[in-house]
Amino acid sequence: MTSRVFVALRVKAAPDRAFAVFTGEIGAWWRPNGLFQTTPRDPGRLAFEPGEGGRLVETLADGKVFEIGRVLVWDPPERLVFSWRQANFPPDLLTEVEVRFEAVGEETRVSVEHRGFDRVPADSAARHGFPDAALLARLGDWWRVLLASLAGRI
């Protein structure tokens, strides 16, 4: 088993538009969070390379590029799965994010499931000393902020 953090929000658009904004405009709607720093430097700008195997990268102010993860499933307009790691994770640790875009009438229910964050080791700086429940709750809160920001962009 692995931990799961699930968050969903309806947005006022069709699934193809929601998928396009999620992937194509992530640099505009992404909101960095101090508890979940991808790198030790100031937050950069995120971008997806479209298609399976494409990278999710963060370009920092000095031009350096950090690879957050890879696209594992690219199935527009319904489903996107990518891996997620932070620079302060142990080298062999990857978590996984699955995003679904489900039509509900004229809206789309965008849901995010972030799996495996409980595998961040107890002594890792990425955990900030939090037990699982607190860490996962904060991760869920952050995804809630992110989805609200996405909805604002759509």
């Binding site: 088993m1 692995t2 931990s3 799961r4 953090v5 699930f6 968050v7 969903a8 699982d132 429940a133």
Partner: peptide, 16 residues
């Protein structure tokens, strides 16, 4: 009712 948030620990227990 529509699920908008679910948090499960590594054993699959519902946390919130």
């Amino acid at each position: 009712f529509e699920l908008v948030m679910l948090i499960e620990d590594g054993e699959g227990n519902l946390v919130h």
